[in-house]
Write a protein that binds this DNA or RNA. Sequence first.
DNA 1: TCAGGGATCAAACGTCCGTTTGAAACGGCC
DNA 2: GGCCGTTTCAAACGGACGTTTGATCCCTGA
Lengths: 245, 245
Amino acid sequence: MAPESTRERILDTAEELFAAHGIQGTSLRALTRRAEVNLAAVHYYFGSKDGLLDAVVGRRAEALNAERSQDLERLIGEASADGPRAEAILEAYFRPVIAYMCEQEARGRQATVARLLARIEAEPPDVLGALIRRHFGELSARYLEALQAALPHLPPEQVAERFRFAAALLTQLLSGNLELDVIPGHPPHEASVTERAQHAIAFILAGLRSPAIATIALQDDPCKRADAGTDNPALDRLAKRAISQ
Amino acid sequence: MAPESTRERILDTAEELFAAHGIQGTSLRALTRRAEVNLAAVHYYFGSKDGLLDAVVGRRAEALNAERSQDLERLIGEASADGPRAEAILEAYFRPVIAYMCEQEARGRQATVARLLARIEAEPPDVLGALIRRHFGELSARYLEALQAALPHLPPEQVAERFRFAAALLTQLLSGNLELDVIPGHPPHEASVTERAQHAIAFILAGLRSPAIATIALQDDPCKRADAGTDNPALDRLAKRAISQ
DNA sequence: TCAGGGATCAAACGTCCGTTTGAAACGGCC
DNA sequence: GGCCGTTTCAAACGGACGTTTGATCCCTGA
């Protein structure tokens, strides 16, 4: 309704199309046609397609990071000397993204950022790594450190690893891939964004909280053995030991 | 060393390049150049690029499904009348993929299938959904049903949802994205495939086992409210309730 | 020996890509 | 009004894409 600027129309449309068809799957021609903008405008404002991608991610990341940063500060301020609890940290990490999705869903629009983030995960590792690090690295580190403080009985590296699991699952949750009906006879349960997030948070929290895993002597590791064979009973034993509580 | 057939060379190279650069990011020209095969051979053998993708996935899916199917049958046969335990089922679901990655890693090669599966996740939903359903749907249903039997205290839909979480996490684990160094000051812990898989299994199992989540009245759901606003205390309460154990 | 069919090949098809160009339109300020 | 910097525009650039074609090779079976 409000006449958006050309720059914003490009960003909005790029976000939508990148999310829907991937970055490589979105041509600037289709993008500018849909945005009702001249083709050359993309290069005028963003220099290149890569520059556009960075701007699209950056715009959302800035808002998201501001909210997350504020939430984390508040948590730390309100908490006891031990620092905030793990579930509070995790919830603060999820909340801004979920809230945004709620908002978009309430307006009947696709939650595009979310899918976009998942699409980015599929970019070549160099592009992906640089992009994520630049836009989300610093704040992720602060959240991770808060989590490590909240879970002092776990080795920090294991908290870090599990935090990565959590972030990966959040990404998948946002991507919409979890809502695809791929298991015949078991269609995904219809639920609101909040419900789905709830369930994911509960799932992740249980994983975060689970007892530490003892490091296993590497000579048992079938990956390190010279004769990595066909059927591998050692791996079975190994995995069984890993999941014994 | 053994002179591979043209068809196989195409499949191998496609698997490798699709995994490394995505499907859209891989041109048939680059593919056939690397495979030292004529450009037209792709269409001769597979009809189209999509046909090639299907064949690439199908070749691995067939082997993987055979192993998984056999493992599941053996589990069911060995188990008591109650059926196999959840961790055994989960382990059987992971084992063939992990074993393949071990094998590839031992040979110093990239575990390409793995990354490929993750790349596929980034395809447009229609293509993705059809592909996954065709190649992995039936067996996933059998695993899910075994899991539901092993976790009778949980509502089947929640087991299904958590099974989706597990599969999503396995995909991410395989994609290699979890090994990217994106959190400054907290580089990922170097570990073998087996170790990483171990940790993921433990994480997932804790989530699978966690108590059921009570369904919450929808009128509390901020997503359903007419005035989905900016800052949302109801969401906070909701999420907090979800993660209270 | 030679026909025949699967396999391979170079070349071209039309289309779309990201990017660049240079000129036209716009808007505020002297 | 005349100017200048910003923004918009149509058109074209060279190149890469997926796909198709028709000729050529090679090998087997009669």
